[in-house]
Design a protein around this nucleic acid. Sequence first.
DNA 1: GGTGTGACGCAGG
DNA 2: CCCTGCGCCACAC
Length: 115
Amino acid sequence: MSMTATSLTRPLVEDRVSIVDDVREDVHAIPAGSVTAYGDIGKSIGVGPRQVGRAVSLLDANVPWWRVVRVDGTPSTCHGGRARALLIEEGVPFHASGRRVDMDRARYPGAELAD
DNA sequence: GGTGTGACGCAGG
DNA sequence: CCCTGCGCCACAC
């Protein structure tokens, strides 16, 4: 036994995988035409918004990552601005400026996020 | 093991 | 409405 190594590595890795798994589930639950904020997902699974963003970046391509936007409605600027086009394609309402999603109408509360 | 960076969020100006 | 600074925390170097 001994092992000075207090085995700190394994749990950390599992936590990381667990977070990605939880995020994937929440993102997959967002219906087309709606969006959810990084912070909202974070609150539902108990992690910070930046961690959610990191997890989303690790998701498979089959997950609708573009439906996760900033709390002010700004779509992800990654993938060459691909997100905005996909959201419009799905009928997500935007503000007159056409730069931010109309969160009042498009925000998806989520099962456990009910406010 | 300190430093910089970011699929974020909020308060201020 | 826009831009700026700060807090946040995991990760790359």
